[in-house]
Simulated assay, not measured.
Amino acid sequence: MTTKRDDAGRPPAPRRGSRPTIRDVAALAGVSKSAVSRVFNGQGGISEPTRERIQEAARKLGWSPSASASALRGERTRTIGLVIVQDPDALAADQFFAETVVGLEHELGPREYGLRLHVIGPDPEQETALYERLARERRVDAFILTDSRVGDARPDLLRRLGIPGLLIGRPWREGAVECVHSTGLEQAMAAAADHLVELGHRDIAYLAGPADRVHIGLRRHRLERSLASHGLTLRALVDTELTNEATAEATRRLLDDPSDRPTAIIYANDTMALTGIATAQRMGLRVPEDLSVIGHDDLPLGRWFHPRLTTISQDARAISRTAARRLLTLLGEPVEPLPDPPPAELTIRESTAPAPQQRGPAPHDTAHRTAP
């Protein structure tokens, strides 16, 4: 190959302000473009000294293969997309999300797949445009979806874009997309209602989170059905954002009037429940003597909080590990499937007790396990 060189015998440097190209790397290393391509595509036929020279030239120039160019050649990016539509403050406080990411990385990392995360606000046009751009530029091989919403258009969008997707959670329409979720969530919610009723609670509130989330609606429906079987209705149903600030404000409103406050509150997740306990304590209420609290997800912090949190347990890490392996299978990777995640269940600890003015020995409960 003939390469134009300057008066000192060096290949010309890339133009200032321009991005280095494979041609620049080849020129600096004194090889052909095909040799550079073979090195970065993991193909053979290149001697070790030449390979090292090419890699050193790429490092000097700050060049790396284009994901879109690789995709045009039919190559995998080995990257999974995860687009989260949520307030950043709520996401920062969401331990369930952190456990989900850990589970995904546990399976993707050892197989040399990366996770590409985008966090955006609730703008449908921006969300659609992001999926379209990532697919068009072939930045990812597939998507993990979370937080299924009423009217969720993402499964149809991914089909139109011709890119695989898998949902962690229950879909808005059954069969719309491959999914992995914990079983028994509605039954565990019914067990939570039964537990509070058995403790003498009649004024029960639910801080549910955003009303458009599919899982929120399913839990609420089962909670209301269970209470109705006892001749009760929800004392209050509050659809609120998932931030600590929104949860604290909603809890203060529920508890502000001593003559008209619930004796128990069920929260949409553990982070909200712990925020609710702290808010109630600052208002001078004792948990569980004056107010019983139930969370959802059984995150590690709830086991160390005082009082330890009664919650609906589901294994976020196991769910996401199963989801990652199933998605890799959709991509044709030879991975062994994991067993289904364990079903959700009510875990009774110290944040629930008999309702005020109905103290006495708690009813013997053999239907639900009690954590040590």
Rank of each mutant, 00 (worst) to 15 (best):
L167M: 03
E112G: 01
A98I: 08
I80Y: 05
D87S: 08
P171C: 04
E105D: 08
I144F: 15
W63E: 06
G165Y: 09
F96C: 01
P171V: 02
A135T: 11
A67D: 09
Y113H: 15
G81H: 06
E137Y: 12
E137W: 06
P155T: 07
D87A: 01
E99M: 14
E125I: 07
A92S: 14
A153S: 15
L91S: 01
G151A: 08
A90Y: 09
L115F: 10
A92H: 04
S64L: 07
A92L: 12
R154G: 12
L130Q: 05
P110W: 11
R76W: 01
L167Y: 08
E56I: 00
R76Q: 11
G162A: 00
T79P: 03
G151F: 12
F40I: 00
R136N: 13
L157D: 08
E75T: 01
R51S: 05
R38K: 15
P171M: 02
L82Q: 02
R149L: 10
V119Y: 11
L166M: 12
A71M: 12
D89T: 09
S68N: 05
I46R: 00
V102C: 10
L161Y: 06
S68T: 15
Y113G: 14
N41K: 07
R133P: 01
I144C: 08
R116K: 10
V101E: 06
P65Y: 02
R76E: 03
T79H: 08
V119A: 11
P88T: 02
Q95G: 08
G165A: 12
T128H: 10
A135Y: 09
L130V: 05
D156R: 13
Q126S: 10
Q86C: 08
A129R: 08
V83Q: 13
D152V: 01
D87N: 15
I120N: 02
W63R: 04
R154N: 10
G45A: 09
A67S: 14
